[in-house]
Design a protein around this nucleic acid. Sequence first.
DNA 1: CTATATTTGTGCGTATGTATG
DNA 2: ACATACATACGCACAAATATA
Lengths: 87, 87
Amino acid sequence: MGDQPVIDPTGPRLVYVQVADHIQGRIRSGDLALGSRLSAERDLAREYGVAYDTIRRATALLRERGLIETVHGRGTFVVAVPPDNGD
Amino acid sequence: MGDQPVIDPTGPRLVYVQVADHIQGRIRSGDLALGSRLSAERDLAREYGVAYDTIRRATALLRERGLIETVHGRGTFVVAVPPDNGD
DNA sequence: CTATATTTGTGCGTATGTATG
DNA sequence: ACATACATACGCACAAATATA
């Protein structure tokens, strides 16, 4: 992921929305399977090259979309797969 | 260590880098021998007078430098000694 | 096998400072 | 003035892995 930056800070779309959409794409594609755990939030921040604050916003968005659930002390897990026309 | 503070929060160098460099110096000097275990992360935080988060950053840096390895539930161990001109 | 203690892993909330649009 | 975004730093709570009694 690091070689092909997925996030464009200069683009019109908000960075945290870009991150959320990208994670959603990984869930839809099966890269992040149902029930699997996402990387730790601080690790996601490093992987995407964004700030921790931005990851918090992105996961909050995915939680609102019902795709993930977060358990204090355990991590964040995929609980639903969006339909192909989910965007 | 407590009487002579090693860390300067007001200095130009980042706190977690100061901590990492100081631990690296202890490894280089033999104070922390090859294979030995570091203090628990939360104890290190107390000893250095910094936050746990800062210790996590410092150890992450030393892990990247290949000097230490961490095992969940066991601790953090010295796996390499930097050369004298390592800085 | 159960229970406890130790240690790391993770998340949650907050604060400060800088920079940009 | 305001929102977004980045980076660092602090403190706390809950969970998991490991070792030992």
